[in-house]
Every structure is written in structure tokens, then in C-alpha cells.
Amino acid sequence: MATPYIYWISTALLSLLYFVSASLYIAKGDFVRKAQADLGYSAAHLMPFMIAVKVLGPAAILWRFNVALSDLAYAGIFYHLILSGLAHLGVRKPKGAIPAAAGLLLLVGSFATQNAARELPSPYAPVAVIQASPN
């Protein structure tokens, strides 16, 4: 079945998106502060928090030592991506919302297929429907 491959590819790409973003926050802090100021945010308060979120969220999903924490990370990333996309659209910069839209697609792929690839199932992920053949 292709479902475990979909899970691992979408999860790896989503994690890569977040880890690269966190490294950008660390390496190019002045650029990120200016970009956040253009969106109307106080970057001095957001930078350390966002670096932590962008590292710990995907780590909780990849490591998955606790299913509830992994589900909470999915929810946090979902809200982050929605708010990020809306922030860019709100200042009429739709190109800035493209990474958030791509991240949402990867997030949905990862969340929807996690039970097919992980030993401990999430109670919130969709359950695959198995159709029995009529005999």
C-alpha cells in the first residue's frame, strides 16, 4: 500500500519546511524581523517563541513518544499555518502565503495517513475504510 509512503514523505517534507524556517529565523534574524514588522508583528517577542515552535512541533510528530502530544503538535502546526497564510493575505502579499498553503497540504497528508504508518494509532486521525467483498 502507498499510504505509509504518503505519510513519511509528507511528514518529512513538512518537517523540512519547519526546520528550514527555524534555521532562517536563527541565521537571518534581521531579515525575519523586518518581514514580521511588515506583517504588523513585534518580532522581538515572536522570534524565540517561533524558533521553539518550529523545532519542537515537527520533532513531536517525528519522534512520537506520546500520541496525545503528537496530535497537539498537529493542531498547533495547523493553526500556525492558517494564521501565517492569513497574515500574508491580510497585507495583500499572496505570494507569502504559498509556503503556508503547501504546508497545509503536507499537514493534511501526514495527519490523514499517520495511523497506516505508526504502531500506536491516533484516535483523531481518520480510519481507513475496508470494503468487504460481497460473497
Rank of each mutant, 00 (worst) to 15 (best):
G76I: 09
G76W: 09
I77F: 07
F78M: 12
F78Y: 05
F78P: 05
H80V: 07
H80N: 14
H80L: 10
L81K: 01
L81Q: 06
L81T: 04
L81D: 02
I82H: 00
I82C: 02
I82T: 02
I82S: 01
I82K: 01
L83T: 00
L83G: 05
G85E: 01
G85V: 04
L86T: 01
L86Y: 03
H88I: 03
H88Q: 07
L89G: 05
L89T: 05
L89Q: 05
V91H: 10
V91Y: 10
R92F: 09
R92H: 13
K93C: 07
P94I: 04
P94D: 09
K95V: 01
K95E: 07
K95W: 10
K95T: 03
I98P: 00
P99A: 03
A101Q: 04
A101K: 06
G103T: 15
G103K: 03
G103M: 12
L105T: 13
L106I: 13
L107K: 12
V108R: 11
G109C: 15
G109L: 14
G109S: 10
S110C: 10
S110K: 12
S110W: 11
A112Q: 08
A112E: 09
A112W: 11
T113G: 08
T113Y: 14
T113H: 11
Q114V: 13
N115E: 05
N115W: 06
A116I: 10
A117Q: 06
A117P: 03
R118W: 04
R118V: 02
R118H: 04
E119K: 06
L120K: 14
L120N: 12
L120P: 07
P121D: 13
P121K: 13
S122P: 12
P123Y: 13
Y124P: 03
Y124H: 13
A125V: 00
A125Y: 02
P126G: 06
P126S: 07
